[in-house]
Every structure is written in structure tokens, then in C-alpha cells.
């Protein structure tokens, strides 16, 4: 348990470091803003209680808001992810996964499942984030482009990261 908490804290520091000090300084285009820090929420073990998942999401968002001189927008987006994540997992995982309390990564669940999972989480996060940042529907299509391109790049980074850290078994299905 203590080990698990330490591991998550280490991950948090590392992800914030990469996000705030490296990725936020890469100005690819106004349409591409990858936010890989959601990975922290995605990679929590599957049996994390729903309320805990919510509160972690809330705290993570607050922290991210502090580091990007914004108020509330990251908090809203990550709380939403914290709420949706357990529901997505309940729909798409089987009993064995919950019994084993696995970490939902590419090694445990294979490429296709992880890709769908990551895409859903990142898309919802970006959708909430970018629309709240603009705070109006006036530039709907520009904002939508922002959401789609950023989702794509974030997804690419996260999936590549998975290949970097895990060995992927050939999928069973």
C-alpha cells in the first residue's frame, strides 16, 4: 500500500515535471497542446474507489491550474475524467481484471483496448479543457480543431510511452 502511494507520488512529480517544464515550453502550434499529465489518472489501479478517483482528479487539476496560471479549467476536466474512468473500466474489463486489481496498461490489456481507453479519456479531457479555456462557443470550429489535434498528439505520446516502458504481449483476441 505504502509502496503504491509512493509510486503514484513519484509518477505525479515526474509527469508534472515533464508537462510543466518540457511540454508546455514546446510551442508546436496554437492548435497542438498535449496534456500528458492525465496519464496519472489513467494508470491508477482498476480497483481504486470511485470517490477516491474523483478526489485525486480534483487535486491533480488544482495542481495543474496553479502551474498554468489558470483557474478551474484543469480542475473541471480532470474531475470529469476521475468520474468517467471507473465507469469506462466497469464496462470494458472482465472480472479477472478486477480480481487481480491490474494496472490498466498496454502490457496487461493489449494495444487495441488501451488505445480505445486512452482515446476516450484524452478526448473527454481535451474537450472539456479547451472549450472552458475559450469560454465561448463563438469559435466553435477552431476550438474543435484544437481539441482533435491535441488529442491526437497526446494519444501518440502516451501510446509511444507505453511501448517504451512495457513489453506488449501479442493480443489474445
Amino acid at each position: 500500500m505504502i509502496n503504491e502511494v509512493l509510486k503514484q507520488l513519484l509518477r505525479l512529480v515526474l509527469l508534472l515535471f515533464i508537462q510543466v517544464l518540457i511540454i508546455n515550453n514546446i510551442n508546436l502550434s496554437p492548435y497542438v497542446n498535449p496534456y500528458i499529465y492525465v496519464l496519472l489518472l489513467m494508470m491508477m489501479r482498476v480497483n481504486v474507489p470511485k470517490a477516491q478517483s474523483l478526489l485525486i482528479g480534483f487535486a491533480l487539476g488544482m495542481l495543474m491550474d496553479v502551474f498554468s496560471s489558470t483557474v478551474g479549467i484543469h480542475t473541471f476536466a480532470t474531475t470529469l475524467v476521475g468520474y468517467i474512468r471507473p465507469r469506462f473500466l466497469a464496462l470494458s474489463l472482465n472480472k479477472e481484471d478486477f480480481d487481480g486489481n491490474i494496472e490498466p496498461n498496454i502490457a496487461n490489456k493489449g494495444f487495441v483496448w488501451f488505445f480505445t481507453y486512452a482515446f476516450s479519456i484524452i478526448f473527454i479531457h481535451s474537450l472539456a479543457l479547451f472549450f472552458l479555456e475559450v469560454y465561448s462557443m463563438k469559435e466553435f470550429f477552431a476550438t474543435m480543431q484544437r481539441v482533435l489535434y491535441s488529442t491526437g498528439v497526446t494519444l501518440l505520446m502516451i501510446v509511444l510511452g507505453q511501448f517504451l516502458f512495457f513489453t506488449v504481449k501479442p493480443s489474445h483476441d
Binding site: 470517490a51 483557474v71 478551474g72 480542475t75 473541471f76 474531475t79 470529469l80 469560454y135
Partner: peptide, 25 residues
């Protein structure tokens, strides 16, 4: 309670965003 907590937290962040976008930022 999870859903209520969810609503509470989301309304709190929306309140922050609203305050921030309207009054003294």
C-alpha cells in the same frame, strides 16, 4: 454519494471559472 460528490466538485470548479471570467480576474 459519488455522483453528488462529482456534482459538488464540478460546480465548485465551474464557479471558479465563472468568477474568474467575469469579475476581477
Amino acid at each position: 454519494y459519488v455522483f453528488l460528490l462529482f456534482l459538488l466538485l464540478e460546480f465548485f470548479s465551474l464557479y471558479l471559472i465563472y468568477r474568474y471570467n467575469t469579475y476581477q480576474r
